[in-house]
């Protein structure tokens, strides 16, 4: 059996092929070969969540996946969130709510928050806390993170309501 493997994946919308060691973690290949350095490795045992990415639309700990398991997958990292020059609403809300200090955990929190709001655009505070409890932050005390996610949800709801009132 070869100790290298050829991995074809879609990374942030772009088709990519990479040759890697079969034992290499997805997190390491994303960071060191594919230059998505926003994937942060905080524990390498799946607890802290700093390395969280979306694999086929679902969050995954990239430190708990082999790169070879990413073959054929659609992978999104924090680098995919901004739309050109425009930051994603979650990115802006994190800054506005002081939801980051050192920022090492931030990419992972953004990805789980993004998934949560995609699945459930109007979460309760408890639902946000439960989902955010998947990841660790050592700086903020979490309140800013929870408020940031809730504020994006609120704004989306009020924009929807505005569109209903004025469908132009």
């Amino acid at each position: 059996m070869s100790d290298t493997s050829l991995v074809r994946l879609t990374l942030n919308g772009r088709s990519t092929t990479v040759v890697c060691q079969v034992r290499e973690l997805l997190s390491d290949v994303l960071r060191h070969q594919l230059a998505t350095r926003g994937v942060h490795v905080g524990c390498e045992h799946g607890v802290c969540g700093s390395c969280t990415v979306l694999v086929n639309g679902k969050t995954a700990r990239s430190c708990l996946m082999l790169a070879a398991q990413g073959d054929g997958c659609d992978v999104q990292t924090v680098e995919s969130l901004a739309d050109g020059d425009d930051l994603h609403a979650l990115q802006k809300a994190f800054s506005e709510n002081h939801a980051l200090q050192c920022g090492f955990c931030t990419p992972g929190f953004l990805m789980i928050a993004h998934e949560l709001l995609t699945e459930n655009p109007t979460p309760t505070e408890q639902e946000v806390r439960e989902r955010m409890s998947a990841n660790l932050c050592r700086c903020t005390g979490y309140e800013g993170i929870v408020q940031a996610v809730l504020s994006v949800a609120r704004n989306a709801v009020s924009e929807d309501a505005a569109r209903e009132r004025d469908p132009r």
Partner: peptide
């Protein structure tokens, strides 16, 4: 224009901040 709350926020939010393992 939208402005971040802190100087370093944009780098950290977009994944472009350089941490020690990014020095190669």
């Amino acid at each position: 224009p939208w402005a971040p709350s802190r100087q370093q926020d944009i780098r950290l939010l977009t994944g472009t901040a350089q941490f020690i393992d990014d020095i190669d």
